[in-house]
Write a protein that binds this DNA or RNA. Structure first.
Lengths: 201, 201
DNA sequence: CGCGGGCCGTGACACGTGTCATCGCCGACC
DNA sequence: GGTCGGCGATGACACGTGTCACGGCCCGCG
């Protein structure tokens, strides 16, 4: 029997996944969580064999939860499920010790199969996503550029970004200009779109 | 027995919903679709009692599908399920004849209950979402302002927006300026964020 | 009919931005 | 020890934008 922890902030989806996995004979959902913090607490309490985590949760990234789980529960298999799979996310997830990564567009049979594969110590990443990740490559942005670009995501003026990043307005413009050039965008706003699409911010 | 049509582009979620609804004695999932066009075709073929539609689908809006279904299958109950519930979406959905509207954050028991309620001819909208919709009110934007603001969503420069909207650059700037003022934003980019958050674009 | 308001355009001004050159400080690497 | 690259800053210039005033056209409404 494979003991599974489910974490997803969308209760309806999480319960539905539980119902889906419940149909399998060799899988048992032993705990559910609706946030990253709760997922960690539940994992400590129930020590599941496999943790199925949603990528986007209100408090913290599913990947950061996975990273912490990897050290707290080394034996626990880690699977990330996500709506919009971005290449950058996949890369970060694999670095965090995740062994299963699949978008929600895959068919139902895949989920339970991936749970079994990961439990056996194997790996599974969605082929389409893997291809995208390889063709897209790494982020060309330096850490600071990514930081500043993320702060620019809300459409805030440069002054506000500078204040929130504790930087000079001129420096912020330099970073944004560099980021836009690297991403082949004409604006920082278009650059934000590109970076988001690749999962680089 | 309530005959249900399920439409959601995320196969995993759709199958999971099917499993969830399959646990109910009085509900039967008779058809599934992964796009808006497919949902319409399936609805014609199977004449379900209730259609459960995801809001965001690749080809067309779940609301526009609902609007068409309302004329094609007048007796069919319409339920919209969505990840991020925006007040503006709720309003448009109700105008299209939708009688059930709920975010995916609700608990599992609610879904089947809403299907039953809608099948009986009743209505259900998520209380929290309803409160937001009332407090947020209608969109202050004129139709053209909303159009232009939508074209500005990608971060494109004014010239490009003007070309795509068949307008003069000056006119575009006027519209964007008006929209930003009405939405209390300093930029058009921040205005886009605000409008998106309210579901006005 | 006059009036308001949505729609579309022009022109002008001030401000925000994008771009580039140049500087200094540091840490990594050969 | 020299070089390279990331980080932070400054200053200057050109361009994109935000804002306002103003013009016109059309439609609906009192």
């Amino acid at each position: 029997m494979i003991r599974v922890l489910l974490a997803d902030d969308e209760n309806l989806v999480r319960s539905a996944f539980a119902a889906l996995l419940g149909l399998e004979d060799d899988v048992e959902v032993v705990a559910q969580a609706s946030s990253g913090a709760e997922a960690l607490a539940m994992a400590r309490a129930h020590t599941p064999d496999v943790a199925v985590l949603d990528l986007q949760m209100p408090d913290r990234d599913g990947i950061s939860v996975a990273g912490e789980l990897a050290t707290v529960l080394p034996g626990c298999g880690l699977v990330i499920v996500t709506g919009h799979g971005r290449p950058g996310h996949l890369k970060r997830a694999l670095e965090a010790g995740v062994r299963g990564f699949l978008p929600k567009t895959v068919s139902a049979a895949v989920l339970s199969e991936v749970v079994r594969t990961v439990h056996r110590g194997g790996r599974y990443v969605d082929p389409e996503l893997a291809a995208e990740a390889i063709s897209a490559g790494d982020s060309p942005l330096t850490p600071r550029e990514a930081d500043v670009l993320e702060l620019a995501a809300g459409g805030a003026p440069v002054e506000e970004i500078a204040a929130r990043a504790h930087l000079s307005p001129g420096t912020v413009r330099n970073y944004l200009s560099a980021a836009a050039t690297k991403l082949g965008a004409t604006n920082r706003h278009a650059a934000v779109e590109v970076a988001r699409r690749h999962g680089w911010i």
